[in-house]
Design a protein around this nucleic acid. Sequence first.
DNA 1: AGCCCCGGTGAAGTC
DNA 2: CACCGGGGCT
Length: 809
Amino acid sequence: MSDYLNELNPVQRMAAETTEGPVMIIAGAGSGKTRVLTYRIAHIMEKGVDAFNILSLTFTNKAAREMKERIGKIVGHKEAKNIWMGTFHSIFAKILRFEADKLGYPSNFTIYDTDDSKGVIKDILKQLNLDDKVYKPSLVLNRISSAKNSLISAAQYANNPITQAEDRASNKPLLGQVYLAYQKRNFKSGAMDFDDLLFNTNILMRDFPEVLIKYQSKFKYILVDEYQDTNFSQYVIVKQLAARFQNICVVGDDAQSIYSFRGANIQNILNFEKDYPDLKTFKLEQNYRSTQTIVKAASAVIAINKDQFKKNIFTDNEEGEKIKIIKSNTDNEEGQKVAASIYETHYTQQAHYKDFAILYRTNAQSRSFEEALRKLNIPYKIYGGVSFYQRKEIKDALSYFRLSINHNDDESLKRIINYPTRGIGQTTIDKIMLAAMEHDISMWQVLDNLKDFNVGINSGTALKISEFTTMIKTFSAMIPYKDAFECANHIAVASGVVKDLYHDKTPEGVSRYENIQELLNGIKDFVEQERTPQEEELKDAIFNSTEANPVELFDAPEQSATLKTLDEFMQEITLLTDVDKEKEDEKDADRVSMMTIHASKGLEFPYVHIVGLEENLFPSQMALNSRSELEEERRLFYVAITRAEKKATISYATTRYRFGNIIYCEPSRFIDELDENCVDFPQEPVANKFSDDTFSKYRKSFNETSTTSSINFGEKGLGFNKAEPKQINFAPPKKLIPLAKRMAETNAPTDNRANADLRVGSVVEHEKFGIGEITAIEGVYPESKACIQFRNSGEKNLLLKYAKLKVVM
DNA sequence: AGCCCCGGTGAAGTC
DNA sequence: CACCGGGGCT
């Protein structure tokens, strides 16, 4: 019949053809996992299974899209579209919209991102009169998130003696109350946070057996990719759904489990066999990606970990170059040396710049590489960082959309009620918020029934409020009847956002204006894309079920079911992963890729530079408290090395800036763990591992770790299954930089006298602001001040005697 | 109401 | 060093 299976090696082929019953595929790095998954699904379909009965959970939506594309080539694109494929969050958000009414939620519930969630927590802390220095919103949110991912409800949390004791110990005795209030507030707002999407799916399946049966019957074949990175909540969902047919296939690599910080539990994959005794396991051990050197070096590193499946990863590829180690004296020098190394390889090997990646442990490390690459005119692209959707102007516009879709979305309301300025000040907002909290309703409900509440707002302000609510209502009325682009465009203009930005002629203002245009363009694209069958189904269900009485202001209602609406757009973008957000048209651009190692998972590059290999940075100082944390760092290092196809280069610096101070760094222990036959060490000794400093540091860290606390969340939960013991660290991160190692900042003497010769019209380069032209000079050197129009950073006034400027022309 | 300046504090990774 | 929030000034 089909010959696609012949493209697989024997193990891959068996894994793809064993479609019935529980299957686990342990897929080493570069072992052709995606190919197996693709062919497996195609094979299931060719055996006659309806695509609507297949659920495939992927790590990013992009991965889902690409896999659908590949499957489509085998079984036909029309059929492939019918597969339910996407991330856990996006798939179950869809299901929750179908079933929302059962949980008391509206089907157009808002999904709160992390910023929204923190905003809610801040309000609650204010209301409960708690100090946000003690109850740090990010820590509180982490704690709540961990609880939810372990299926601990707010009520269970608040009444659990263990969590109570734990929170008292960390000086946050009311954390349970915060969690309760947080859930209540979000519910009133018709909002779910990311963790709620999974948590509430579990509630749904627990409390509504008919719903569980419905989806169990629907999803006859279930596949889960990156299973090593699932958390308890996800584990239970999968287990429940697969309970009827048991055609469950999980794919993963325990050696690449790197997301425990967001609740991922490597035990899910290590213990999978316990849940399904008749499990068939396939190990994909042949690496098709990397050289023998890279495979050997990586294997030596990962072998040090205790907690893992035994694997014998091998490759038939050539031996390849040794791993090169670059030592630098400072972080800036590291940037220069790495950039130079890329530059050199680019020319000597005729490599494209897109063949290179710089991988780092933390986003903050990107700076020195950016600067160095820019100096050598090497194009680069940074993945992650502040995304488009995080920008202020975009969030403002989206908040208008969100509020128009769901009036009870308090976080959006707070953001835009006085933007652009319309005379509704902080005092008024505080009064509204107070009334909302007192009556347990959303802020909108207070605004919309202002006279029913004794809020103490004067008639002038009341008028402004009513103008605001009327405006939002007209937006809402439009959404079901006009496509997303028309609505968004109308809202952006009618709200005054566009006008506000248009009048701002500073370079920042211009760029904000352009960003809004870009957002609108994106929405235009969205409108022009066809819906997937699932989206069609969902659209119908929600459109027909809305209790809302359609206001016939615009086109005929029957037309609206075919339109792609603004609320659909919002649903789509909220759950995009960082990878999903990357622009397609830049994919082929010839640029060096820069990203965190986490973000690099699943990617591959011929030449990989792994940078910042220093103790306390990689491994991170936060990971030195336990074996399991250190093992996760090691897995992260393993992931980094195995991204490389031809050559891996590792670099470290002996000093580095941190919080404005220079600190000394030691080479990472991971360097020593590489198989030494695979490594090209620098001439001088790498490090003196047993200096007094080293000992003093470890003594210090040992003494300090004893306050770290943990609680066991394993016993309760929702009562489906026994949870794995869940550790939540609540101790603040320990600084492990010994006093002896600190050094006063030594500002390199800069000769700025040359700046005295600068004139209006001179073009200069500033190390931070980039290239700019001097438009005015005031005063006489050394007291002179130059006004410089920078190309990318806007206008700045700089004192010439201090400004570090290089004359360009 | 908005702007600016100051000081305190803080960077791991993310749906 | 860089960002954010608070407070004070216009």
